[in-house]
């Protein structure tokens, strides 16, 4: 199994006729993702490489039984598009956009909760269940099927980390980009709960950063009864306090936000903490061996 995504998800693309939308439909479609519809107001009735385009998410869902949305519209339009897809019946909406106002994500998260749906992102590369399906723009060659669940706050770090795992023969059930923003569709704690309930996932790799509160949830999970083993890499030990390191959530505002406090808390909770990227495979192996 995997979490959130496999070949059975029926995907509609919000913003299907833009550059990202078109590239995604080709790339993810050839990877195995089941893409059934596009939505582009004003372009209803046309198609993108044979995939029908609709005026609204509701029309797309009615015609194609789509249950999952890939949101590829400009940041200021994401709130409208994501909520439209959720209210049309999509149970998962994947958001990759960066530069999105945080209030919009707060509203999207509330809309998802009210409709029994889930979102991932924003400011994320998406997610991939290797060998099955992908959403977003993760470079496919970095991943292979296997027993490791991967959660990442950062896109390129998830490629780097996953490629190292793949080269070492450690495949992944699903790699989830939870994103670098302060309010997330799926938090680290929620992603851990999903991996916990996935029988195929034997252990979990968490790729985190300084700043924010995600790592507290990772430590809490690791301490809980019957938790699957977790290995974690936290980047930003060289980040100065008080400066935003690209991601809005990556800011050391207090001692608890810093590298030392986070890694100590994780180690005390039984997490296999990596000393740096070169140590990732070793700690991931240790986590797998303990499963």
């Amino acid at each position: 199994m995997s979490i959130l995504l496999d070949q059975t998800n029926r995907v509609l693309v919000m913003g299907a006729t833009g550059n990202y939308g078109k590239f995604f439909m080709k790339d993810a479609g050839s990877y195995g993702t089941t893409i059934v519809a596009g939505v582009s107001p004003g372009r209803g009735g046309t198609d993108v490489d044979g995939v029908p385009v609709f005026e609204s998410a509701r029309a797309a869902v009615a015609a194609t039984r789509a249950d999952t949305a890939m949101v590829f519209v400009p940041p200021v339009l994401v709130r409208a598009a994501a909520i439209e897809a959720i209210e049309a019946g999509c149970k998962l909406a994947v958001i990759t956009a960066d530069e999105m106002p945080v209030r919009d994500m707060i509203e999207i998260r509330a809309a998802a909760q009210a409709n029994g749906a889930r979102t991932t992102g924003p400011n994320s590369p998406g997610l991939i269940s290797p060998g099955k399906a992908k959403m977003g723009f993760m470079p496919s060659f970095c991943f292979m099927r296997g027993p490791m669940g991967v959660i990442s706050r950062s896109g390129s770090l998830s490629y780097e980390g996953s490629k190292r795992l793949t080269l070492a023969g450690i495949g992944q059930t699903t790699v989830v980009g939870i994103g670098g923003d302060p309010v997330k569709g799926t938090t680290a704690g929620e992603a851990l709960a999903l991996f916990h309930n996935d029988p195929e996932t034997k252990a979990i790799v968490y790729l985190g950063e300084i700043g924010g509160v995600e790592e507290i949830a990772v430590a809490e999970y690791a301490r809980s009864q019957g938790a699957k083993p977790v290995a974690a890499l936290i980047v930003g030990k060289t980040a100065p306090p008080g400066k935003k390191m690209g991601h809005a959530a990556a800011l050391v505002g207090s001692k608890a936000d810093g590298y030392t406090a986070k890694t100590q808390m994780l180690a005390k909770s039984g997490v296999y903490v990596c000393s740096g990227l070169p140590d990732l495979v070793k700690q991931a192996r240790a986590a797998l061996a303990a499963s």
């Binding site: 950062s154 390129s156 300084i210 030990k237 390191m245 000393s275 740096g276």
Partner: peptide, 15 residues
């Protein structure tokens, strides 16, 4: 490129 990877590279330089 990418905030996480950039911090990862910063840390690697120090290591």
């Amino acid at each position: 490129g990418g905030a996480g990877m950039t911090m990862g590279a910063m840390d690697m330089i120090r290591d």
